[in-house]
């Protein structure tokens, strides 16, 4: 009935939202969506640097995202500029640098649109295994990180007094975000990956009484978006990544209306 690439796209997408949605809850709670967008924007530069150094592009994305995170946190501490200005500068300059750097790679043909908006056709069996492997790995780490990260999110000082190594927890969280961006990039692209983190979380908020319920709800919203988006893409011949995000946005809009009428 379906082409293989649709099945691979749905499986890979489900793997991504399984961690992107709960991580996205923290992005929403910690008000880090611009921070996440900045990490995603730097991904192209990561790809370019990795290709220059003959490394795996995904590894390049993760490494550069972590470097970005450390630079943002360090510069915020010194309070030279407001955080949003700083993040904006880094996000757009790394995006521009990335595109320029890719142009220098003469002998490599790069599907720029694929990186920016995702290309489900480009996901092979090996890629699918990689995406699922990273999803399971980050999912396990997030499971153990959950309570300390949640505690530090509610109140960092109380968490610290209760023995949570707040800085280390924050760093691991950032690395997880970078990993999800790297694998999600394949599916929905660097410009849309953050929406796959924050829209399901925002849609689930209204129906949750605890943080855990919100995370589970976000996974469900994300899963429905992936399946719905891929099917829409198949039948309507629309680009798959943006289709997934459109479905997620539609669910968010419905949840918003339900909240108004409730």
């Amino acid at each position: 009935m379906f082409e293989d690439f649709i099945i691979r796209g749905i499986l890979g997408g489900l793997g991504v939202v399984l961690v992107a949605a709960p991580l996205g809850c923290f992005v929403v709670w910690r008000r880090m969506s611009y921070f996440g967008a900045a990490l995603a924007h730097s991904a192209l530069l990561g790809v370019a640097l990795a290709l220059m150094l003959d490394m795996d592009p995904m590894l390049g994305v993760v490494v550069l995202a972590v470097v970005m995170a450390v630079v943002i946190v360090a510069m915020e501490e010194r309070r030279i500029l407001a955080a949003d200005t700083l993040i904006g500068i880094l996000a757009h300059s790394t995006l521009a640098l990335g595109i320029v750097a890719l142009a220098f790679l003469q002998n490599v043909r790069i599907d720029l649109m694929g990186y920016l908006f995702g290309d489900v056709l480009a996901i092979g069996n090996r890629d699918l295994l990689f995406v699922l492997g990273v999803a399971v790995g980050t999912g396990i780490i997030l499971w153990f990180l959950w309570r300390p990260l949640l505690s530090a999110t509610v109140h960092a000082d109380i968490a610290a007094v209760e023995g949570v190594p707040v800085m280390r927890v924050r760093l691991v969280f950032t690395v997880l975000m970078a990993a999800v961006i790297a694998v999600g990039m394949k599916l929905v692209g660097v410009l849309l990956i953050v929406s796959l983190m924050i829209i399901p979380a925002a849609a689930a908020r209204r129906f949750a009484a605890t943080p855990e319920a919100m995370a589970v709800g976000a996974v469900l919203v994300g899963a429905v978006s992936v399946v719905g988006g891929m099917l829409a893409s198949f039948y309507l011949d629309t680009p798959s990544g943006p289709s997934i995000v459109v479905v997620a946005t539609a669910i968010f809009a419905v949840s918003f209306v339900l909240r108004r009428s409730a």
Partner: peptide
């Protein structure tokens, strides 16, 4: 407390472990 983060009093209490 941030309205975006759903949190019952009992869940808040168990955050400490």
């Amino acid at each position: 407390p941030d309205p975006i983060l759903p949190m019952t009093a009992s869940r808040f209490l168990t955050l400490g472990g």
